[in-house]
Amino acid sequence: MIEIDVNGKKHNVDATEDTPLLWIVREQLGLTGSKFGCGMAQCGACTMHLEGEAVRSCITPLSRAKGKKIVTIEGLDKSLSEPIQKAWIEKDVPQCGYCQSGQVMSAAVLLRENPKPTDEDIDNAMAGNICRCGTYQRIREAIHIAAKSI
């Protein structure tokens, strides 16, 4: 059994240490907001926070996550999740929505570190998140809106 701390709760999970965090969280903890998209840190759909940093949980082995504080979309702090969600609603950002948990998690780190990002800052911070529906321009606008209320 390996102990992990997800969204402030400790869990003992039964898995080999090479198991990616994503599958532990999705299959064992039943938190399905973080998505599987590529399995090789290319698309960002699985983005979680590990000790506050955005990580691609599809390639983050349990061995790296154990004992660290992990936050998923379900546990994102309201000081970030609320303004971001409000902005996403205002701009009607999501289409299929599958990538959006990851987009929100990447945007949250950006806004925490850089409360007034420029377009270029946004492009750089969000470059690891693919949206096949092509909602990028709305994400960019929504981040600017969210920045005003954070």
């Binding site: 299959e27 907001g33 996403w88 950002v93 999501p94 929505g97």
Partner: peptide, 21 residues
């Protein structure tokens, strides 16, 4: 009119086929 599914698509609640169990 604003989309009905934005909230659940930004908080992890929306259920895709992949999320079924």
């Amino acid at each position: 009119i604003k989309r009905l599914d934005t909230k659940i698509k930004t908080n992890g609640e929306a259920m895709f086929g992949m999320d079924a169990s």
